[in-house]
């Protein structure tokens, strides 16, 4: 049945007119976007919870206001193929749910955008994992984007790194990341979906390991002057440190909770024996 009828892109007429007006304005001046309740360098509220998928080795759920991402890690587990005595294989797969965006259309099969983003996330994380510690094994990371309201890459990298920590995989450090959208004269940290889809803007993504002060991934797409790029990267690096402190705090909290639960269980078992 799927695709047997013609589809129409629908939009409210008023909005269309407004957009046309905006476009006219944009041609004359720079893009004017108002942020509600936050400044250009301010992050939205972040909610993190690790260990929520019972069937996975490690998992993490992240909410950056409306952006919702779930990540689960399987492994390190034995590789199916008989291979040489080499370091672990590291796979990463990102998938958008079909209802994750009201504008973009996603199918059940992997499209180019998802493949591209999977690779960027893999590259950002692979430097932090001690793969040589797990020969002849596979580590699989699966990421599912439930709701896309911008900054999906940062949410995914953060969730994946937390999930790896939750799975107990040996790492040099957790990877924190930060992205921004640059217009002609403004740098907007933690962009929303609306800000990401503005025309004539540049996206910058930085991922780094703050404890070692090493950058693991740097992606910039769009034209921008050299000085602005440096400025934006500096801003993003500061943003990474902020995200890192949230991740660290969350990791400590979840470990404390696990220890408490373990204690409670032990106490209960002792009670049973008596």
């Amino acid at each position: 049945m799927r695709g047997s009828f013609r589809l129409f892109y629908i939009q409210k007429k008023k909005e269309q007119q407004k957009n046309e007006q905006n476009e006219n304005k944009n041609n004359n001046n720079s893009i004017d976007i108002q942020r509600n309740n936050r400044s250009d360098e301010q992050f939205r509220q972040i909610f993190l919870k690790s260990g929520i998928v019972s069937q996975a080795s490690g998992s993490c759920y992240i909410e950056i206001e409306k952006t919702k991402v779930l990540c689960s890690v399987h492994g390190p587990r034995a590789s199916h193929k008989t291979e040489e005595f080499v370091a672990a294989k590291f796979n990463c797969e990102l998938k958008y749910t079909t209802f994750s965006s009201s504008v973009d259309k996603y199918d059940y099969t992997e499209n180019n955008k998802e493949k591209d983003q999977s690779l960027i996330i893999r590259e950002a994380l692979i430097g932090s994992v001690r793969l040589e510690k797990y020969p002849k094994t596979v580590i699989d990371i699966y990421i599912l984007v439930l709701n896309d309201d911008g900054n999906v890459m940062v949410a995914s990298i953060t969730a994946a790194s937390m999930a790896l920590a939750d799975a107990g995989v040996e790492m040099y450090d957790m990877v924190a990341s930060c992205s921004s959208v640059c217009t002609k004269d403004r740098i907007l940290l933690d962009p929303s979906y609306q800000e990401e889809s503005l025309p004539n803007t540049t996206n910058i993504l930085v991922a780094k390991m703050p404890a070692l002060n090493q950058v693991t991934q740097l992606v910039q797409s769009g034209d921008l002057s050299y000085n602005t790029v440096i400025e934006a990267v500096d801003l993003n690096i500061d943003g990474c440190d902020k995200i890192y402190s949230i991740m660290k705090q969350n990791l400590i909290d979840s470990l404390e909770k696990q220890l408490k639960d373990k204690d409670n269980n032990n106490n209960n078992n002792n009670m049973d024996i008596k």
Partner: peptide, 26 residues
Amino acid sequence: ITTACGSSFVKIGNTSVICGIRSEVG
């Protein structure tokens, strides 16, 4: 899910599912 026109999240013990509805016109 704010991007879907209807959604729900169900949890039975550890089992959890999320359901979203996408609307199209034809």
